Simulated scan of single mutants.
Amino acid sequence: MLERTLEPEVMDSEAEARDYDQMDHSQVNRIFVEDFLSSLHRFGVADTSGIHVFDAGTGTALIPIELMQQGFAGNVTASDLAESMLAVARRNVQAADLSASINVVLRDCKQLPEPEATYDAVMSNSIVHHIPDPGKVLAELWRVLKPGGLLFVRDLVRPASIEAVEKLVLTYAGDSNEHQQRMFRESLHAALTLDEVAAILQELGVDANSVKLTSDRHWTICCRKS
């Protein structure tokens, strides 16, 4: 099994923010949002107008924007620890004319200022692999979620070998520039295995079966807080 190799927790240079924003995330983001909305509906949320969502590690806010464009009627607090990412996120939100629905904020998701049970739903795409101790982030996301709320977290799964890493880089970033390929490669090395995520959930008192493999490179936590 490939050992986990940590990468920088914060992608906070202009080059990283620009390259990340310019990578084609459209299909991944669309599927993420479709799955998130489907999970809300499955847990009985038919009307999203009063729903307040926390997006942990929003990057350049592409997922909250996609969420609104798919008909979500609530509002989103979109958070990140990287000022460079947030600068691009604010421009993206403004360009999409969604400033009234998406609030872009600076947050360290290992230690959130929000009180317990603040949000109706918490979502996150690809923040966990950035964190040296990802249990801290998952614990905080669970803490700020209201009882009955949806936790929906998706991230990369660490492949079993370097060969498997390179196959994924070629498949999903083969047309990207060298810096973008390196970011994806390093993220795969820093990602968690399904068993590692399940163990963290168990420590938090969350059903370990809430995490499942959902693609050839992703795991997803989907559960309702009792």
Rank of each mutant, 00 (worst) to 15 (best):
A46V: 12
L40E: 07
A95V: 10
F72N: 05
G57F: 02
E116K: 12
K110L: 02
G44S: 11
D47V: 10
E116M: 00
P115W: 00
L106V: 12
A61V: 12
R107S: 01
S84L: 00
D97G: 08
M123Y: 05
V88C: 01
L81V: 10
D108R: 01
H25K: 08
A73Q: 09
M123K: 05
S39W: 05
S38E: 14
T77K: 03
T77Y: 04
S101T: 08
S99M: 13
G135M: 00
A78M: 03
R107I: 00
I131S: 01
I127P: 01
L40Q: 06
H130N: 02
D120R: 03
E114A: 00
F43Y: 15
E66R: 15
D120T: 02
N103P: 00
S39N: 09
A100M: 10
T48L: 09
S26W: 07
L81Y: 05
D108E: 00
D120K: 01
F32Q: 07
P134D: 03
R90W: 03
P64W: 10
L67K: 06
T77F: 06
V105D: 00
S99Q: 14
H41V: 09
T58N: 03
V128W: 02
V33I: 11
A89P: 06
A61M: 07
V28I: 07
I51F: 15
F32D: 08
N75F: 12
D47C: 04
A100E: 11
G74V: 05
F32A: 05
S49A: 14
V53Y: 05
M68R: 12
H52Q: 13
H41Y: 14
V122A: 01
Y119C: 01
R42A: 15
H130E: 04
G59I: 07
V105G: 06
S79T: 11
T77A: 06
F36S: 06
G57C: 04
L81R: 06
T58S: 04
F43E: 15
P115A: 07
H130Y: 02
Q70Y: 13
L67Y: 10
V128L: 02
I65H: 10
G50C: 08
R30N: 13
A73Y: 09
A73S: 12
N75K: 15
V88T: 12
N125G: 01
T60I: 11
L106W: 15
M68I: 14
D108N: 13
L112V: 06
V128N: 02
G44C: 11
Q94K: 15
